[in-house]
Amino acid sequence: RSRTTFTAEQLEELEKAFERTHYPDIYTREELAQRTKLTEARVQVWFSNRRARWRK
């Protein structure tokens, strides 16, 4: 699998969701996946990476 490139629109959606919760449940992730046209797995990994960046 090659590296996922996120569009500005996708990042906006993901960042907005991250402001609400750092640990979205499966329903939230599924909804985000549909809205951003990404897979739920990509959304999950993005949140994991985003939390790592947030901790630094």
Rank of each mutant, 00 (worst) to 15 (best):
P24H: 00
A17E: 15
E19R: 09
A52F: 05
W54N: 13
T7S: 10
V45W: 11
T36S: 02
R35H: 02
Y23V: 06
A8D: 15
K16L: 09
R35T: 10
A8I: 07
A8V: 07
T4R: 08
D25E: 04
F47E: 09
E31L: 11
T28I: 07
R53F: 11
R35Y: 05
W54G: 13
L38H: 05
E30I: 12
Q44C: 13
L14Y: 03
E31A: 12
E31H: 08
Q34D: 05
S2C: 03
A41K: 12
R1C: 10
A41V: 10
E9H: 13
E19M: 11
N49G: 12
T5C: 11
T5Q: 07
E40Q: 04
R42P: 00
D25G: 05
N49W: 13
T4P: 09
F47K: 05
Q44E: 12
P24T: 01
H22M: 14
H22Q: 14
E12T: 11
R51Y: 02
R55E: 07
T21R: 04
R29P: 01
Y23G: 02
N49Q: 13
E31Y: 09
R35P: 00
N49K: 07
W46I: 02
R3I: 13
T7C: 04
N49M: 07
K16R: 09
E9N: 07
H22V: 05
V43S: 03
R51S: 00
E15Y: 00
R55W: 09
A33Q: 05
T5L: 09
E19D: 08
K16M: 08
T36R: 01
F6P: 12
R42A: 15
S48W: 05
R35W: 01
V45D: 12
E19V: 08
W54L: 14
S48N: 10
E30R: 13
I26T: 09
T21E: 14
A17R: 01
R3Y: 15
E13P: 03
V43Q: 04
W46G: 00
V45M: 09
K16D: 08
R50K: 07
A17W: 04
Y23T: 08
D25K: 02
R42M: 15
L14V: 03
E15C: 00
A33N: 02
T5W: 09
R50N: 03
P24Q: 00
T28Y: 12
S2G: 09
L38N: 04
N49H: 06
K37Y: 06
R53P: 04
R51D: 03
A8M: 08
W46K: 01
D25T: 05
E12R: 13
K56H: 10
